[in-house]
Structures are given as structure tokens and as C-alpha cells.
Amino acid sequence: MVSEGGNFCEKSKRNFGKIPPRPSVEVVWTWLADVPDPEIPVVSVVDMGIVRAVDWDDDTLKVTVTPTYSGCPATSVIAMDIETALRDRGIANVALKTQIAPPWTTDWLSDAAHDKLRAYGIAPPSPAGGPTACPHCGSANVSRVSQFGSTPCKAQWRCESCLEPFDFFKCI
């Protein structure tokens, strides 16, 4: 930090005179944990496992992200939201890197994400290939409407007990 200080200040002056301290990557992770997924705002981009790495490279903050589905339209919005959130915290130089290998998998969803999804009315992914219970009433008597739903990552299911339709976050 000290050795880089001079260089950092020079560059910061060009960025409208802001001289923010360089936060630790741990702090940056907590910031990113506040960036909601644009399609499912109840979970963050960190909960989703989309943010894979955060590193400092000199005075540039490098954030590595892995897109969910190849064609997910949220991907570019997520990149923009991450960049905006970091700039709002005073990070002048942000470099986003997209990494497709290893491919994103629902295994990367955090335990917290599973609970948040359920509370939001979306059945979390399950290894059985289908939801274990209706996220509304908890009944196990559920049936599939369609393997494709409102976003690339979700399927449409229906509860035969409370008769409510619901989204299932499908395994990939």
C-alpha cells in the first residue's frame, strides 16, 4: 500500500480528486453481497455464485464473473450493476473479467440463497431434478408444468395441494 501510494494518488487526481483508501478484498466481497441479482432481487450476485474472484492488480480491482446460462439477458446488467456498485464506493478502476470455465452450476448457490429463494416463492434447486416441496405451503404433492419458465434458470411447477403455480430453480 505505502509503496503504491504515490502512483495511486496521481491516478486518483485524474478521477475527480477522489483519494479513497484501497479496501481489502474481504470488504469488497461484503459490498458485492449487497448487489442484487436483477432477475431475482432477493438474492445477491454473490449468493448466486456469479462472482468467482476479487483481486487487486495494482490500483485496478479485478472482479471475475461467471455467467449463468449462455443467453441470460441479465448477464450484461449484472456486470453493469457490479461496476456501478464499486464505483459508488469510490473504486475508480474496475476491470470485469468473464470466465466460462468451469461452467456455472446451481451447486454454487449458497445455503442462504436456498432459504431466500424459498421465502420468495421460488423452489430452490434440488439434486432430485425437481422441487422437494411447494415453496408456498410445503406440500410434497407437486407437478411440472414446463421445463422452461420466466427466465432461463427456472422451470414452471404447480402445487396440487394449494393449487398455486410456482417457479423452480432448475439444476444445471
Binding site: 446460462y69 449462455s70 443467453g71 441470460c72 439477458p73 414446463s146 421445463q147 422452461f148 419458465g149 420466466s150 432461463p152 414452471q156
Partner: peptide, 13 residues
Amino acid sequence: IALANIALDLVGQ
């Protein structure tokens, strides 16, 4: 919806 989703996957690929 299914056809549009599959189209989206393919265009993404």
C-alpha cells in the same frame, strides 16, 4: 416461453 428460452440459449451459445 419454452421456444423463446431455447432460442435464447442458442443465441447465447
